[in-house]
């Protein structure tokens, strides 16, 4: 598997497009710089605009495995880095009991036996019994990887500080084994939904990109690429409707992924036009709160009335 080389921003953009990801110039430039400078990318923006998708697409474009770490409150080092597999160690000890008895058979004293046992300690604290968690897996991998640290804002501040250490040196110390240095620097993507302010130290080390909702044309392009079965006219109507919905004051704006779900729903329902009935029936695909659905219905009805009023006039 040959490593492709991305020499220009355009090459990055095309590669991402090849993996069904429409990248703006900004996104392509940041990804290009991340590769060149070896810096992590911190992507912020509303939920569902393709922050996570970007790293997946980049992993696919570069043919590298994606190592994903989902953050949550209470995530700690043992869940993110490594853990000793106690159960397996126990099992091995049980099964190897005879062997151990042989080993200790000729021991003259207790301390002699302990010394002999200590000599074999390495067997039990080897990589065989090390349960690798995402961070260690990304560092320890033989091939370059793409590491995705998803929703870093959900993790605690202390974990953020710990991550900082890993991201700056790309090495990890396991007391029993020694220091493991990354053979290849993984490309790191961090995403944040901005539910809390990240520390300045972390931001300082990253390239920053704010991904906002796409414009009508961009979104249409995405829909066409991902749901090619939808009629072009219907696709445009659908995208325009979603963009209009984003302008209403909703509790949760419909995201790009929900637009795509909706587009797929329209294809499945074999909808011919975006009439009132279709809209009413499928609105729940886009909006996930009862209050939002009611508000959107009201807005649609007002629009409808305005249109009819104009016709009657």
């Amino acid at each position: 598997m040959a490593e492709q080389i991305f020499d220009t921003v355009d090459a990055v953009k095309r590669a991402l497009e090849g993996c069904l990801y429409i990248a703006s110039d900004e996104i392509a430039t940041v990804v290009y710089l991340a590769e060149k400078l070896g810096k992590p990318v911190l992507a912020e923006g509303p939920a569902g605009v393709g922050k996570t998708e970007l790293s997946k697409a980049w992993a696919a474009a570069t043919n590298r495995p994606l190592v994903r770490m989902q953050c949550y409150e209470g995530l700690d080092e043992s869940k993110a880095l490594y853990e000793w597999e106690y159960a397996k160690q126990m099992l091995y000890t049980q099964l190897l009991r005879d062997k151990l008895a042989d080993l200790l058979a000729g021991a003259s004293s207790l301390s002699d036996a302990a010394d002999r046992l200590a000599n074999e300690e390495d067997v039990f604290f080897s990589e065989r019994f090390l349960l690798q968690r995402p961070l260690l897996r990304a560092i320890n991998s033989d091939t370059p990887t793409v590491l995705l640290v998803d929703e870093i804002d959900r993790a605690d501040a202390e974990f953020e500080a710990f991550l900082l250490e890993v991201l700056s040196d790309f090495q990890v110390t396991v007391p029993e084994l020694g220091t493991i240095v990354a053979r290849h620097h993984p490309t790191v993507f961090l995403t944040s939904n901005n539910t809390r302010e990240l520390s300045e130290a972390l931001k300082r080390r990253c390239l920053y990109i704010y991904i906002d909702y796409p414009s009508t044309e961009e979104e249409l392009q995405i829909v066409r690429l991902k749901v090619p079965d939808l009629q072009p006219k219907l696709a445009r109507q659908a995208v325009e409707a979603v963009q209009a919905l984003r302008n209403i004051d909703l509790r949760k704006n419909p995201s790009v992924s929900e637009t795509l779900d909706w587009a797929r729903a329209l294809v499945t329902l074999n909808a011919q036009a975006l009439d009132k009935a279709t809209m009413e029936n499928t609105l729940t695909v886009l909006l996930k709160y009862e209050a939002d659905v009611a508000r959107a219905r009201r807005a649609l009805r007002l629009e409808e009335e305005a249109r009819r009023g104009r016709k009657d006039w």
């Binding site: 921003v9 110039d25 900004e26 430039t29 940041v30 290009y32 710089l33 060149k36 400078l37 911190l42 912020e44 901005n194 300045e200 931001k203 300082r204 990253c206 390239l207 920053y208 990109i209 704010y210």
Partner: peptide
């Protein structure tokens, strides 16, 4: 970043500066 992308293309230059210098929306 600027060394890498060059300063000739205005747009790329702007984006290079922005992504490295600005960390808050």
């Amino acid at each position: 970043a600027v060394e890498d992308l060059g300063a000739r293309q205005r747009e790329a230059f702007r984006l290079a500066l922005r992504t490295t210098l600005i960390k808050d929306e």
